[in-house]
Design a binder for these strands. Structure first.
Lengths: 118, 118
DNA sequence: TTAAGTACTGACAAAAATGTAAGTAATGAG
DNA sequence: CTCATTACTTACATTTTTGTCAGTACTTAA
């Protein structure tokens, strides 16, 4: 939950206005968001499939991150009226438009992060 | 301060190992880091010049962010033995190597963030 | 009637990030 | 002796993010 009037939040919003970079990083910067986006670049996934792909995230946090990505227009939530329920997540056009950028960010990291031993 | 054994930190580190994207985003994801890096892309700056460029950041936080960028090898801290003191910050080679990526992240943001009302 | 499957939600707690306000050290200028 | 200058540091407080654990709703199958 965000307190709309804290210096913290005011600063965040102020930065967005004149720094596209900060804006972008806020959208994709959550702990599990890169992993989620990466998975969805392959195509649509059910909630349970995402969970399987990302075993370390707790359900609460997974849902939180999905909701934020949805609110920010990067993913779509598709609900099918079935029992048991079926919900699929997929990238929106805006989400898809990140593909190239995400690849470049990923490449930079792969190239520069400390090498694994062995 | 980071608690090395918290689930939070363990998750962070585990993600880094198999997601270059998450690793990169952790390096540049601090509140003021994009702004700092952006400023330093133009060239070296003194501490006081950075402060002037980024009026909303408090000194404590500015120093914290600079220290992290330095620890992560993206910027260099150059200290001159003068009085009054002079300290300059500049990008390292690794920092410079981000230029293209940062530009792309910035462009995506400029293109997709909600438009200012006129 | 009980259990299984799916996609969650809620109350609570811990950890991390960010911010505020005041103070410090060294030295040369006046 | 006092002040200005620069680049910080310290103690503390607030806000935000992330995590734990248990529980829910709905329907079908056994």
């Amino acid at each position: 939950m965000r307190k709309e009037s804290s210096t913290n939040t005011l600063n965040r919003n102020k930065i967005h206005v004149n720094c596209g970079m900060a804006y972008t990083l806020d959208l994709i910067g959550g702990r599990w968001k890169p992993t989620i986006l990466w998975a969805l670049l392959e195509g649509k996934l059910r909630y349970s499939e995402l969970k399987k792909n990302i075993p370390d995230v707790s359900e609460r946090i997974l849902v939180l991150q999905l909701r934020e990505l949805e609110k920010d227009g990067l993913i779509k939530r598709l609900v099918y009226a079935e029992v048991p329920p079926r919900v699929e997540y997929e990238l929106t056009n805006d989400g898809q438009s990140m593909r190239h950028m995400l690849q470049i960010i990923s490449d930079w990291g792969d190239l520069h992060r400390p090498k694994k031993a062995n």
